[in-house]
Amino acid sequence: MTRDELQKNIVSILVDEFEFENPGLTDNLRDDHGFDSIDAIELLAKIEEMLGYQISRKEKEQAMSIRTINDILNYIETIQAAHQSQ
């Protein structure tokens, strides 16, 4: 999945299911949209669905420090790269 496709999917999930309004790629998710650790865990489940495989516990813990949509995209790309190299 390309970064553009990822971005489209993630923004769509954040708008449709997490009630985000006009999210920007560099918005602080917590301060600007009230996105917290429970949202992060729910989003990880959506990302797993989107990617079609499970994310490891260690990778999930790394997701707790995500602050922006760009961070989410970087995070998914890192996971995809790690998964492909296995």
């Binding site: 650790s37 865990i41 516990r57 813990e61």
Partner: peptide, 11 residues
């Protein structure tokens, strides 16, 4: 909160 060691527990 998920600060530090609590992240794993929360997940």
């Amino acid at each position: 909160s998920t600060e530090g060691i609590h992240a794993q527990r929360m997940i």
